[in-house]
Design a protein around this nucleic acid. Structure first.
Lengths: 210, 210, 210, 210
DNA sequence: GGGTAACCGAGACGGTACGTCTAGTCTTTAA
DNA sequence: TTAAAGACTAGACGTACCGTCTCGGTTACCC
C-alpha cells in the first residue's frame, strides 16, 4: 500500500485528479489503462526491456500509441508502474529486535526479490535508466529509497546501540550492503543464487560490526 | 598491452588466424578497422551509447555498414573494443608491500577510471549488456576479470598472511569491494566523487580485516 | 474520368471507404498522396522504372517511406497510378460510323499514346509486371481492358454487319490488332514511328476483312 | 549450329581471339564457363530472372564473381547465352512446299517453344532488356532475327508467287505474324495455349493472303 | 627455365535499396 | 473538451547484392 501511494505520487498524471472525477471532457478509460499495464507485464515476462516498444505495447493492448504517451512520459515509467504494482514487491518487513538482524532480513528479502524473472526486469530498468535520467530518479523513488531508508534506520539505531562503530559513514555503509547485490545482478546474475542469499547478508553485516 | 591481447582473444574474428595471414581472399582492411574504432570513440565522447547507431558510425568512418557487421556482432562488442583499446584503461598497478594497501590502490585506481566520461561509458556498456548476454561475457572478460583477479590475488595473499580472516569467502569479498563502486556508478553516478574515492577504499578494506 | 474511376476501383485501399470519411483517426493526407504521385511522375520522365526506388520517391516527395508502403503494394502499382492518372491517356474516342474506321481510329490513338516517353513507361510497366503477377492484372484492368473492350465492340458489330467474317475468332482478332503494336514497343521501339502509325492500322484492319 | 555461331559472335569477349589460342596468360577455364552456364540454367528453372543475382550464380557455380563479370557484361547476356545454348531452341525447320505452310509451321514451332517454362524465361529476358538497351540488341540478334528472317524469306517468296499481295509491307507483315504471339506471352501468358497454337497460325497467315 | 601475362577462387570493400519497425507528432472522430 | 484512433515524417534496423578491389595461386606463352 505504501508502495502504491509512493508510485502514484511519482508517476505524473497517473491519476489525473485527486477528487473523484470533476474535470470536464471525456474521462480516462480505465479499460485502456489496465490493458496497457497488462500488455506491458506480459511482454516483460519474455522480452528484454530494450526490445519492448511502445508501439508493440499499444498493438498488444489494442490501444493507440497516443494513449500511452499521454499518460506515461517514458517507457521506463510505464514499465516501472506495470512492474511495481504487482504483488510480492512490497517491502513489508517483520519487526526484529536487533539492528543487525533487521539488516540481514532486509538484505535477504531483497535478494529473494531480485532472483529470477523479477531480477532481470529490475536490471533492465536500471539499464534503461542509464539513458534516461528522469527514469533513474523514478527508480530511486519508487524502489530503492524505501530499502535504503530502512537500512539507514537500522544502521543509525545500531550505531546508537554501539553495535556499529559510531564514526561509520552511514551512506557508504548502505552502499556497502546493497552494492554487492546489484553488482551481481547486473554483471553476473546467476551468481545471485541460494548460496549467496544464505551467506552474504551474514558476512556483509558482520564486517560492519565494531 | 595485456589489455590489448586480452581483447583480441575475446572479440571473435578480430584476428582471423593466429598464423600470419594464410587465408584466401582480400585481407581485412586495417584502415577501415581503425576508422571504425576511431569514429566510435569520437561519438562516445558526446553521445549516449543508446543513441549511437551503426549507420552513423559507418557514415562517419566512411565505411559500408556491412564492414561493421562483418567484424562485430553487436554494437556492444564494437563499443567495447573501441573503448577499452584506448590509453588510460590499462590496469597496471605499482607493486605495494601490504595486501591491504594493494587492495586500496586497486580500488582507487578503479574509481578514478570510472569517474567522468569514462564512467558514463562503462555504465552504458553494462546497460547495453543487459539485453545482450554475449556482451555481458565480453564485458567480464575484457574489463572486469583483470580487476577481479588482481583483487583475488591480494585477498588470497592477505588471508595467508593472517591479515584477513581465513574463512572469508573470497568471491564474496571481491564483490563486497567492487559492488559499491558499480552500484554508485549505475544508480547515483554523482556520488562517485572525490570524497568517495578518498574514504571508500580505506573503509571497505578495513571492514574486511580480521 | 472513366480511367480515374477504373483505377481507383483497382488499386486497393486507394479510397478507404466509399462513404465520405466516417472513420476515426487521422484521415489520409491528400497532400502526401499528390506529392508522391507527382514525384513518381517526374522521375518517370528521365529514369527507367527499374532504377526508380521507393526510397528516392519518398525523399523527393518529402514523405516517409511507410506512407508509400501503406497505400501501394508494389512499385508497379504506384507507377501505374501515377502514370495513368495523367492527362492524355484517357481513351475517349470520337464516334465513327463504320466499324472498320472505328478500329483504325482506336489503333492510331493507341500508337500515338505509346510513342516517345509514354511508350517507354508502358514498356517498363509491362516488364515490371513479368515478375509481379498482381501487377500484370492491374495493368490489364487499368490500361489494356478498355482498349480491348472497345476493339471487341467494334469487331462484334463489324461481324454483325458482314464487314468481317462471321466465324472470325474475336479474341484472336483483337490480339492480331494489338499484338504488333506492343511487339514493336517492346522489341524495337524506334519502329513505332510515324510511318508505322500511318500504315499499320489500315493494313491490319483490312487484312481482317471478309 | 547457326544459332551457336550467331551467339558467339554476338556476346563480346566470348571468344577472345579469332585465331585459336595464341595469347599469353592462362587461358579461359572451360570448366568455369560451363559451371556458370549450368548454374544459370538451373536457377532459371524455378526463379524469376529478376530474383537471380550474379552473386547467387557465382556461389552455385563455385566460381568467383569476377569470373562472371569478366566474360559477360550483363545479367541479360549471361542468361541469354545460358538459355539459348540449350537444345530445343534451334530453329531448324523442315522444308515445306508452300510459302503459306512454311509460315504456319514457323509460327507453330515458335508458339510451342514459348509455352511453359521457356516462355516465361523469354518474357523475362524481354523484360530485362527494357532497362538495358544492349540486351535488347542481343535478344534480337540471337533469338528474334533468325525467326524474322525466315518469315521474311517465305513472305517474299509468297509475294513472288502471287500468294500474297505484292504491295504488302513485308516488315509490317512479319510483325503482324509475330506480334500477337509475344503480346500474349507478355500480357496474358496462359492464353498461349493449345487452342491458340492450333488456330492462330492458320488464321494469321490466311488473313495475309491476297 | 625464368619471366611475364592473363586467368582463377575467395572474399573484403564502399555503396544503395530493401521492406519493417519504432519514435514522437498531428489531425481527425467519439464520448 | 478531452480521449482515443490512426496517419504522418523521420530514420535506424540488419540483409542482400552491386560492381570493384586485392590477395595467393595457377597455367599458359615467350625468350
Amino acid at each position: 500500500m505504501a508502495a502504491e501511494a509512493a508510485l502514484i505520487s511519482v508517476v505524473p498524471n497517473s491519476n489525473p485528479g485527486s477528487n473523484p472525477e470533476k474535470r470536464p471532457g471525456r474521462p480516462r478509460s480505465d479499460k485502456s489503462r489496465e490493458a496497457i499495464l497488462d500488455a506491458t507485464r506480459k511482454m516483460l515476462m519474455h522480452t528484454p526491456l530494450r526490445d519492448i516498444s511502445i508501439e508493440a505495447v499499444a498493438k498488444r493492448a489494442g490501444v493507440g500509441k497516443t494513449t500511452i504517451y499521454r499518460w506515461w512520459p517514458h517507457k521506463a515509467a510505464l514499465v516501472m508502474e506495470a512492474f511495481l504494482a504487482q504483488p510480492g514487491l512490497q517491502n513489508i518487513l517483520p519487526t526484529t529486535p536487533g539492528a543487525d538482524d533487521a539488516l540481514k532480513v532486509q538484505l535477504e528479502k531483497l535478494i529473494r526479490q531480485l532472483r529470477g524473472q523479477n531480477g532481470r526486469i529490475v536490471a533492465n530498468i536500471i539499464a534503461e535508466a542509464q539513458a534516461e535520467p528522469e527514469a533513474l530518479d523514478l527508480l530511486n523513488k519508487s524502489f530503492m529509497n524505501e530499502r535504503v531508508e530502512n537500512l539507514r534506520r537500522h544502521l543509525t539505531q545500531g550505531k546508537a546501540e554501539g553495535l556499529f562503530n559510531a564514526d561509520l559513514d552511514t551512506d557508504m555503509a548502505i552502499d556497502q550492503l546493497l552494492g554487492p547485490v546489484f553488482y551481481r545482478l547486473l554483471t553476473n546474475p546467476e551468481a545471485l543464487d541460494e548460496r549467496f542469499n544464505s551467506h552474504y547478508p551474514e558476512q556483509a553485516v558482520n564486517t560492519l560490526k565494531a
